[in-house]
């Protein structure tokens, strides 16, 4: 994951939210549970401790109540767009969502239009899923 963080921090046209606060994590997890969504997996929380939400050239990694209006909130995004109680949406680009499937314990790239799972990454491969959504190139 450090490799991705390094690449991200080198980008000029990226917006990164400040690290999330513990209090906000608890509040968000409660909100998600009470609305019957899966909670945020630990592997993703680790990201939020470094960057609470990311926006890069039309792609987004969601965060918890991010301070900037162009960064997207996990809870709000799920309330607005998620109809699957086993999935938690954690990011998106123009075509797809990045979702966490609590049944298969994996990250999935899900087509926004027909909900087809296009890619699936085990939890340990979150970095690849994030790279897919953000399309950041290290050159």
């Amino acid at each position: 994951m450090n490799n991705l963080f390094n690449i991200m921090s080198k980008q000029q046209l990226i917006k990164l939210g400040s690290p999330v606060k513990a209090k906000d994590i608890i509040l968000c997890q409660k909100q998600l549970l009470s609305n019957r969504f899966p909670t945020i997996p630990d592997s993703f929380l680790k990201i939020l401790h470094t960057f609470n939400a990311v926006s890069f050239n039309g792609s987004h990694i969601f965060g918890i109540s991010p301070e900037n209006q162009y960064l997207t909130d996990i809870f709000k995004a799920n309330i607005s767009h998620n109809r699957n109680p086993n999935i938690l949406l954690l990011g998106c680009d123009e075509f797809d969502y990045l979702g966490y499937n609590q049944l298969s314990k994996s990250y999935q790239i899900i087509d926004k239009e027909d909900a087809e799972v296009l890619e699936e990454y085990p939890e340990r491969e979150l970095e690849l899923a994030l790279t897919y959504i953000l399309k950041i190139i290290d050159e």
Partner: peptide, 20 residues
Amino acid sequence: MHYPLHRQEKHIIRIDYYGT
């Protein structure tokens, strides 16, 4: 209502759109 695209077609559309 729609007939979903084939997965391979979606794959090509995405590459064409992002260039990556």
